[in-house]
Amino acid sequence: MTITLWILQLLFIPVLSPVFIGLTRKIKAEFQNRKGASIFQPYRDLYKLFHKDEVISEDASWIFRMAPFVTFGVTLAIGACIPIVSSALSASPVGDFLVVIYLFALGTFWLALAGLDTGSAFGGFGSSREMMLAAFTEGGLILSLLTLVLLSGTTDLSSVATTMRSLPFSSIAPVAIALLAFAIALLSETARYPFDNPATHLELTMVHEAMILEYSGKRLALMEWSAANKYLLFLTLGATLFFPWGLAHTLSLGAIVVGLIILVAKVSLLCLCIATLESSISKLRIFRLPDLLFTSCLLGIIAIGLII
């Protein structure tokens, strides 16, 4: 039984992540009065990419070849660390929030190296910008999750999700502020507006797309897929930690099925929020972004200041 649940937990992120990318695109298309592709289009894209030959730059080294496996593998590993199926399942000694944040950093590190490896000007600047954003995002991300950690008295994310359900009404203010800090970090980490434009290639402002510009075929598929995984991982973290209702706390089948359905609904709602946001604001200038990230960090400090 537990084994089945573990398989469910590990498959949840990679199997469902493309649909939420598709969903976000679909909602954005609605905003633009377009019909838009089906929400299952990302699966077709992945299938197509996996069945294409790939071109690898002659300047690239094994770093470029290995990076997609690392970034994808890291998202799978994080999928095992955070509470998804049931908080009773994933109470493991790697559920520490710092582990999750630093595993994300490991993926970013390799992604940025891969961007540099081909010697293209696009990739280099993408990496430079990505590392700048990643470095300044870390403070806000750690502090926003630390607020929840301090409120619940444990750093284990599954236990945080459990205690978050029964918080007193008075702690709404710090949690709301921490959520704001987390939301800014989420947009930055998942390369969304106003940090990055996920829908464009060859724009001078692009960050994520610039780094993976040289990829094709199966390695591009892995890169796209791991970006989707990261998106879903962040949404799941937000949904289960800040809105903890519905998450199963036992290993009973009924609770888990209900919990997963509620999780999918919550994540879809968050996608709607992000798509709305992306359709209503413009991308910020690159040197305005650190201001936003420092704001996220400041919000985190305020949230912690309210509870200590």
Partner: peptide, 28 residues
């Protein structure tokens, strides 16, 4: 888990994309 993640990513690619070739060419 990091090693397992890596192995899983590699195995997945091996299964999904077995016959495809890699061509070495210029950076765009």
């Amino acid at each position: 888990i990091v090693v397992l993640g890596l192995v899983a990513a590699w195995a997945l690619t091996e299964v999904a994309s077995r016959k495809q070739k890699s061509v070495i060419d210029l950076t765009w």
